[in-house]
């Protein structure tokens, strides 16, 4: 029963955000601020996460492919394709489900329980347009940027760890990566990042916007936002793989 209530209220929230998006110009500043918070401020952790994902993948793949007749460029192929199709998008999304999702849910949850959303409404703002739409749009716009950062950082991490440990020479890594590189993989990754950006921000907005019960309620909303975002990212990842591959 609660599920239907949730789905209904969620859809209503998103509908409201889309319906009132004609006032886009009015809330342009909010979008910019949210883009900074979601995209720009997340870049360090994303570059770090991507870099180490690539580095670890290269070392572990070379450890797993011990047979002598497998050429070293195979490792480059495996690492680069995994990064572009799957890991750059999913790892960064999972990291940001915690970082961005929790932040959004806390912000909106605090505003909800301290009547700041009511205050906005009573001043004549459309609180959904003002609070939800910029956050969701920022997620959709900035996640591809985050994907690019994670992918490039991952490739650099892979190259560097292959070079430093002697597992894969740089030239072999690049040769392997180029052999399997296809623009379709990148567009698949970008589509994923769009979807993940939408999932994280919209779920977190929903959880925060409808938070009740004081500080404890905000804490609950935050936890639920992060956990639900992670779950729906994995589900969406599966569905997208099923639909697009």
């Amino acid at each position: 029963m609660q599920l239907f209530v949730d789905v209904g209220r969620y859809c209503r929230l998103i509908y409201e955000a889309i319906r009132s998006s004609t006032e886009f110009g009015m809330y342009w500043k909010n979008i910019i601020i949210e883009m900074v918070k979601t995209g720009y401020d997340s870049l360090p952790i994303i570059i770090l996460a991507g870099f180490f994902t690539g580095a670890v993948m290269t070392i572990q793949t070379s450890y797993q492919l011990v047979a002598g007749f497998i050429p070293p460029e195979t490792i480059g192929s495996i690492v680069s394709q995994s990064l572009l199709i799957e890991l750059a998008a999913v790892i960064s999304a999972l990291v940001l489900a915690g970082r961005v999702g929790a932040r959004i849910a806390t912000e909106l949850g605090t505003m909800a329980v301290s009547e700041q959303i009511d205050a906005l409404e009573s001043m004549g703002f459309n609180s959904v347009t003002f609070l939800v739409m910029p956050r969701v749009l920022a997620g959709i716009f900035m996640f591809p940027v985050i994907y690019v950062a994670a992918a490039v950082a991952g490739m650099s991490g892979g190259l560097l760890s292959g070079y430093m440990t002697g597992a894969v020479p740089v030239a072999d890594f690049m040769l392997g990566a180029r052999q399997v590189f296809s623009p379709a993989d990148v567009s698949f990754g970008v589509i994923k990042s769009f979807v993940f950006g939408y999932i994280i921000t919209s779920i977190s907005c929903y959880k925060g916007y409808f938070a009740t019960g004081g500080a404890e309620g905000v804490g609950q909303a935050t936890t639920q936002a992060a956990v639900l975002s992670c779950i729906y990212i994995l589900v969406a990842d599966f569905v997208l793989a099923f639909l697009l591959l």
Partner: peptide
């Protein structure tokens, strides 16, 4: 501060696009 935010976002997006294009060309050799 507002101007700075816009610059931040503009730079981030432009640099990301640039890196993406360079990476693309690099990967396609």
């Amino acid at each position: 501060k507002k101007i700075q935010n816009e610059i931040k976002i503009g730079l981030t997006i432009v640099i990301a696009l640039l890196i993406a294009i360079i990476g693309f060309r690099l990967m396609q050799d």
